[in-house]
């Protein structure tokens, strides 16, 4: 943000719906996660540790709620007081939802978290002073703070282990906030390649680490404005629109035959992750 933004183009700078008056072009990264395919196996989470240099905090810090998993698998039970969970559990991978109207962005005092032109909610580590207001205002609580200086911790990346660190991703020091980036380093590389070839990134050309690992291929990721992309088709098939907070499915409770939804739609953060409801067999 600069003074110019304030004086001249404020209305463009912050959109009510970013897609209303300024459609994303040529990229809008988005995801869809099929909860009926997700088995809750945690492969995505480990892959994220491998790709994004996430520190292993150890038992004690985990106990204090200081874990750094950018993507976590949540396990829910049915809430009906049955003796046994005879319909199994429900798993939900939860990571930064890359909201279009992100509650975290407006509150950061130093503008360290911003919206990028391709629809990501970016976190600028260098700029972050660690006020943690973003985390306070995040309804999903998917922002993770560096409570300690993990690079200097003896047990996080001891000798040899540090050679595994991904050179494309910053190793974060203490006092900064971090979160899922949709593997922005991969997106950058793919966009660069595409640009040099005079085209846009093709669907499937770039995968996030979690998507790549997922044994059940429950995660799809891509460019929402590319009509050829799987994500675009999935969102369209589910009639979920990025800039609406009430989708077709919500209007027709029970009878829509759609299963795409976004979490906390009513808070209007306009998340970029669509989940597909888990299906339960009616015959048993």
């Amino acid at each position: 943000m600069s003074v110019n933004n304030l004086l001249e183009n404020w209305s463009q700078f912050r959109h009510f719906h970013p897609v209303d008056d300024k459609p994303h072009d040529p990229y809008k990264w988005a995801m869809s996660i099929d909860l009926d395919a997700c088995t809750g196996c945690n492969a995505c989470s480990v892959a994220c540790y491998a790709e994004n240099n996430l520190p292993v905090v150890g038992k004690e810090k985990y106990a204090h709620g200081q874990a750094m998993h950018w993507i976590r698998i949540e396990r829910y039970w049915d809430e009906d007081d049955r003796e046994f969970p005879d319909q199994g559990a429900q798993f939900l991978p939860m990571m930064c939802q890359q909201c279009e109207a992100a509650p975290c962005e407006t509150v950061c005092p130093v503008a360290a978290t911003n919206h990028t032109a391709d629809g990501l909610n970016s976190q600028v580590y260098n700029r972050c002073i660690g006020s943690r207001y973003c985390s306070a205002n995040c309804p999903y609580k998917v922002r993770y703070f560096n409570w300690y200086d993990y690079p200097s911790d003896d047990n996080v990346w001891p000798a040899e282990m540090n050679q595994q660190l991904n050179p494309d991703v910053t190793v974060r020091g203490k006092g900064v906030m971090e979160k899922c980036t949709f593997c922005v380093q991969r997106l950058h590389a793919a966009k660069g390649t595409a640009r040099s070839e005079g085209r846009i990134v093709r669907d499937g050309e770039v995968q996030t680490a979690c998507q790549q690992a997922c044994p059940a291929s429950a995660i799809s990721f891509g460019n929402l404005v590319d009509p050829e992309s799987r994500v675009h088709k999935q969102w369209q098939a589910q009639q979920v629109a990025l800039d609406k907070d009430v989708q077709t499915k919500d209007k027709e409770e029970g009878g829509s035959e759609l299963r795409g939804y976004r979490i906390f739609e009513e808070l209007r953060p306009y998340p970029s992750v669509m989940y597909l409801e888990r299906v339960r067999e009616s015959a048993v």
Partner: peptide
């Protein structure tokens, strides 16, 4: 500049 939107 800092983020003039932030109450902080």
């Amino acid at each position: 500049w800092p983020n003039f939107q932030s109450p902080l």
